[in-house]
Every structure is written in C-alpha cells, then in structure tokens.
Amino acid sequence: MADRSAWPLHELLGISEWTSSSQDVDKVFGLVGLASDQQRVKHLVDYTYDAPSLYRKVALTYLLDGDLKMLNSASDHSFAQYTHLPTWVPDWSSWPRASSLGIYFRKHGDPPRMQPANPPTVSSDGSRLTVSGQFTDRVVAIGRHLPILRETTDRALVFIFLESWCRLAHRYLDAPAYRTTTRGTSVAHSDPVDIAFASLLTLDCPLAHMACTSYTGAYSRLLEQTPCHLPRNGGSVQYKDVDVFRYRNRMLTSCRKRTFFITEQGFMGLGPYFLRPGDQLVQLDGGWTPMAVRRKRAGCFELVGEAYVPGLMKGGWEGEAVYEDICLV
C-alpha cells in the first residue's frame, strides 16, 4: 500500500475482502477515497443504492471499459450472499472465497492489461453480459475438497487430500512413477507429472531461499516428514525443515478454497471451489487467466470463476484465436 497511485478500487476490494462493515455498501464506499482511480468511481457514492445495485454498477464501470480483471473477483458465486446477482458480478459482502489470482500476480509480475478487440456489452435489463472468448478445454475430473476452514491436521491434509490429488493426476495423465519409502509412503520423483503437480500446489510461486533444488523435492520431504499417525487430539506438525515449512504454508494459501482438477487435454489446475466435471474453460479476449463457465441454458453460461492452469495462462494457449460471443448470466 506504500504506493497509493498503484491501487484502483477493484484491486482494493480484492485485498480487503476479510474486512467488515455495518452496511454492505460501505465495503465499496469506504475504499473510494483510497483508490488511485477515485475520480473515475466517486460518482458511485450514493446511499440510495442497495448493495446488489452498487456491486453491479462497480462491475460495469470496469467491464464496459474493457477491464476484464473484474471477472476474476466473481469466482464461486455459490458463496454469494445476494444470490440473485448475475454470476459475473462479484458479491463483495460474501466470504470465504479464495483471494483473486489478480492479487497473487500483482505480487509476482502483473502481466500488461490486454484491451479486448470487442469490449463486453450488457443487456438492457443488466442481467446478461456478452464477452468475446474462445473455448479451450473441458474439466473431466476434480479432486477432494480441502475443508474451507483450517481445522485439518497435517496428516489429513497430506495423506487424505494431497496424495489423492496426486493419484488422480497420475490416473488421468498416465505417467506412473512411484517408489515406496521405508515407511510405506508413495513418493514420486523426477517424473514430469510430479514436477508439474508439486509446483502447481504453490501456483508456481518462487519460494525464496529454498535450499532444495525443486518443488518436487520439497513436496517429497513434506510427505516423508509428516507422521502417518498423530495423537487423537490432532495438532500441527512442527516442521524443522525450513523448505518444507515454507512449501506447506505457500501450498495452504494457494489451495484453500480452490479445487484441483484435470482437463480433457491433459492439463492440471486449481479452480473455483464449486467447479464440476463438464465445466468448460474459456480464454476471454482481454483476459489473462482461463475462466470456468457452466452451461445454464441454450446460448447462456454461468461464470464459475477463475482458474490457474499452467500452459493455458495468458500467452500459453497455442491454438488459433477464433473468438465468439459468450453470454454470461
């Protein structure tokens, strides 16, 4: 926050999602004076608006100007308090959603804004947003959901959730490469699937000052150092290995409230918590992460939310860019 000129309103809304206010409209109004683009949004400060109307106006202020990052804040509409909002409008009064990937990339090299050739348009009743995009892939399998709250032992986290995700990746990507440790734990080494899986769990975030040479090494050591059995009262494991401690903390931040999934084309990713097999991934013209959508009715889709898919992020899609109009409701 040191450089106030760098924080427009929609990004401030993302980093303040855990704050509370007595009125839901103040989730927006309380930040306008801090926003670098306050001249652009100060007209929204009007207490005659109810929260749903205000949230829609904020979203359209950016979307109709071609700034599609707003859609990354609309993930997991099932968490929304105002359930009658269109799925493309973020409900800033609700939690617990995963923090938008926009916040993560802001810390690790935000890509330049891509202005779409055809900015979105909104229907006369404000319920449908038409965006330009191309369908790139389809979700075929999802992993077990990590609990939303942090009431999970390290043993459950590692052996119930992460290892089931890893087995799912190998089953669909057909690259078994396991060895068995003396403790009976399946540990993967130097296989492309394992390397990709271990780095995905941290959103490929650089782990500063890691002594080990790879994400795979840190993940393997996490398995080896997590006891197979813990006392009945649970408790956390005290990891003395600094690499493992950093890896575990980064992984928790990245994976909580997100779903592990496999795509039809053989990619793995982290997506919205309520993602389902059959949901489609679309690359929006002007967007910079794949977005998951779900067919609602003929010609219309619900926005499920943002997804992190190495290989399909902005600049990674190698298919011909043939865009079509996609109606979000």
Results as ranks from 00 to 15, higher is better:
Gly266Glu: 01
Leu9Asn: 12
Asp125Met: 12
Arg221Leu: 00
Ile326Leu: 02
Gly102Glu: 14
Gly66Leu: 15
Asp67Ile: 07
Thr153Asn: 00
Ala198Glu: 09
Pro147Ile: 01
Glu17Pro: 08
Val131Glu: 03
Ala117Lys: 10
Val242Gly: 01
Ser36Cys: 03
Phe197Lys: 10
His209Ile: 08
Phe301Lys: 04
Tyr172Ile: 14
Pro120Phe: 11
Thr289Ile: 10
Asp279Trp: 12
Thr263Gly: 04
Gln280Leu: 13
Asn249Met: 11
Arg155Pro: 00
Arg246Met: 11
Lys107Gln: 13
Ala298Phe: 09
Leu9Cys: 15
Tyr172Leu: 15
Trp88Leu: 10
Ala211Ser: 08
Leu9Gly: 09
Ser93Lys: 08
Ser16Cys: 06
Cys205Ile: 12
His189Leu: 13
Gln283Phe: 01
Arg56Trp: 06
Gly235Ile: 09
Met210Tyr: 03
Tyr273Ser: 09
Gly266Gln: 07
Lys314Trp: 15
Ser100Trp: 09
Gly269Phe: 08
Asp46Thr: 08
Ser127Cys: 02
Arg183Glu: 00
Thr48Glu: 07
Cys327Gln: 14
Arg106Ser: 15
Ser5Tyr: 12
Ala307Tyr: 08
Ile15Ser: 00
Ser254Pro: 04
Pro119Asp: 04
Pro120Gln: 06
Tyr82Pro: 11
Gly319Ile: 08
Val237Ile: 10
Leu60His: 08
Phe261Ser: 07
Glu320Gln: 09
Ile103Asn: 03
Ile262Cys: 03
Gly133Ser: 09
Lys57Trp: 02
Thr213Arg: 10
Gln134Pro: 03
Gly143Thr: 13
Lys27Trp: 01
Trp288Val: 12
Gln134Tyr: 06
Gln265Trp: 06
Leu13Ser: 09
Phe301Ser: 14
Arg155Gln: 00
Ala292His: 02
Ala175Arg: 14
Arg97His: 10
Asn233Gln: 13
Cys166Asn: 08
Val89Trp: 02
Cys205Asn: 13
Thr180Asp: 01
Gly319Asn: 06
Ala35Pro: 11
Thr202Glu: 01
Leu44His: 13
Asp46Gln: 13
Trp95Asp: 12
Arg248Asp: 12
Ala292Arg: 07
Pro112Phe: 15
Arg297Met: 05
Phe79Thr: 12
Arg183His: 04
Arg221Trp: 00
Ser100His: 03
Ala2Phe: 04
Gly66Ser: 11
Ala196Met: 03
Leu222Asn: 02
Thr19Tyr: 00
Gln39Met: 06
Met268Arg: 05
Val41His: 04
Arg295Leu: 10
Trp288Ile: 12
Asp204Gln: 13
Arg276Gln: 05
Ala321Leu: 05
Val329Tyr: 07
